[in-house]
Amino acid sequence: MSALAIETTGLTKRFGRQLAVDGVDLAVPQGAVFGFLGPNGSGKTTTIRMLLGLAQASAGEIRVLGEEMPRRLAGVLPAVGALIEGPGFYPFLSGTANLRRLDAADGFAPSASRAARVSHALERVGLTHAAGKKVRAYSLGMKQRLGIANALLAPRELIVLDEPTNGLDPQGTREVRNLIRSLASTGTTVFVSSHLLAEIEQMCTHAAVMSGGRLVAQGTLDELRRAGTTRAQVLVPASDAELAARILVSLGLPPEVLSGPETELTAPIPDGVAPEDVVAALVRDGVRVRGFAVQRASLEDLFVALTGEGFDVVQ
């Protein structure tokens, strides 16, 4: 296994009597695009704050880029870019001036190349034309883009993005996705929290799911999907429905039946049964199969299964 960019053991944060983060063991491999999922209030931002040394852990250990945190904070942070719970900028300064300030705050960033870094970062998020505008006059999405530009100011080994696509238009969302892919292609580890599961599904290699402060799932996207059930969907003429159902039951796939002009039978595929064998069995016994599909569990199904259907915020 390759080295880990982020590793926590038993990471815990207590606010008064409430456990906001409860014994989280994260393992983010180097070079991964790691989706950090969870409902509102599940402890994602609090975890990120502890990773970056903004908040102290109540218990547990943290290693970022192989270094112990928060002891080696000053050495690690220059290699980490972050967007934490939305952007934060001085409204009375322009986008450029804000980035210059944050760049100057990094005591290790050479001032000679500051202007070049700032304009390059602005260009990467498509803000070049609004660079001179006061941030007060920025729209929500423009501020969000500026926040991402800040994370990209210097070459980083790890980029932490807390809900990066919040408030972005479709072009902006797509650009962020491309940006993350291009970062990953240069070996940068990207740790991205989001509610947009489709988004995560499109760009992440790994994911973890938080629920009520606990880590309830973690792994590569394939591993996570495998944890969900795969379902077979069979489409047959109504007259063949009964026969098909009987065969499916005999194979260990008790189907749900949806009648219409054609009948649709869906059933979870048990381990050890190959989907093609199901089709072969149906056809052999004379079922006129009009359609067959294998539905892999979507991340959304898994997410709901892990974190519950309830809409109310936990705690």
């Binding site: 000053a74 934490i84 719970e85 934060g88 001085y90 705050a105 990094d106 005591g107």
Partner: peptide, 13 residues
Amino acid sequence: TGTLRYLLVSPVG
């Protein structure tokens, strides 16, 4: 203004 967290992460000790 929310700039404190970004200054600290920049990092300013």
